[in-house]
Nucleic acid binder design. Sequence first.
DNA 1: TATACAAATGATAATCATTCTCATTTGCAA
DNA 2: TTGCAAATGAGAATGATTATCATTTGTATA
Lengths: 143, 143
Amino acid sequence: MHEPEHLKSAGLKSTLPRLKVLSLFETSKERHLSAEEVFKLLLASGDDVGLATVYRVLTQFEQAGLLMRHHFEGGKSVFELNHGVHHDHIVCLQCGHVEEFYDSGIEARQKKAAAERGFTVHDHSLHIYADCNKPKCPNKIKS
Amino acid sequence: MHEPEHLKSAGLKSTLPRLKVLSLFETSKERHLSAEEVFKLLLASGDDVGLATVYRVLTQFEQAGLLMRHHFEGGKSVFELNHGVHHDHIVCLQCGHVEEFYDSGIEARQKKAAAERGFTVHDHSLHIYADCNKPKCPNKIKS
DNA sequence: TATACAAATGATAATCATTCTCATTTGCAA
DNA sequence: TTGCAAATGAGAATGATTATCATTTGTATA
Ligand SMILES: [Mn+2]
Ligand SMILES: [Mn+2]
Ligand SMILES: [Zn+2]
Ligand SMILES: [Zn+2]
């Protein structure tokens, strides 16, 4: 029961919808969730939160540094709890499974490439799109 | 005047809108263009092509391998002529300027990261978001 | 604890990029 | 030239996200 403090320290007041969304990310089996998925999971668990509120809260949490937003292919934003450690993503094109990885060599070479060209890096996104080849992976893109 | 053959060999018949779009990419000062930009540039040059046709043609050219599509931040697809050599992008958050780079070390480490996890790579996208620090860069995001 | 009110919510309208529909036009093969 | 499948263009439809605004709620204060 530390969520209210999380919100407080982020300058957000502790409301029911915000607690529900945060709690969902902390307990969900899926680490990376879209707004639509958050909305549906809350509905399914009997917690009614308006879709507009879901979008608002996700954006607020992102700005507060509680969540990170990613733009995978498919047009919809995906969010995950910000555990403070940067990582990149491998996304399975068949089942949508997301695996995280970190390669300090890649990170270093990115910085170098940008610096050599006079750029000041703010941020980067690296997504590898692939087949996961897991036994449970269906050969069909999940809707 | 070799465009018609390009289209023919791609299995697309040589129509006026398609020739105009292809020619625009071959002559434009900007290498990376969104659908909206293509549409407006054609209008400005007196070549009227419907917006729906622009979208259709861009997608067809992408499928034919003539263009590559990228998803930079900002929600709209960006296209460029496919010159056959893979590269990644550094995008200036202030002026939208795009610079290309290629780092074989990064490429190799990506393949390795995916392989180690049992993935079969289809594709990847690496975008570095930064300030270009060029003298001509305005401190404002261009609309 | 009751009250007051700014902040938050939720239903719904609006927006934006993109795709779809369908009547009309066009490239091109015969 | 003609015939016609393929392509086009105007506008409707879609899907994700944001804006509006009347109503509700968290919380500071009396
Ligand atoms: Mn992640
Ligand atoms: Mn490029
Ligand atoms: Zn999979
Ligand atoms: Zn710049």
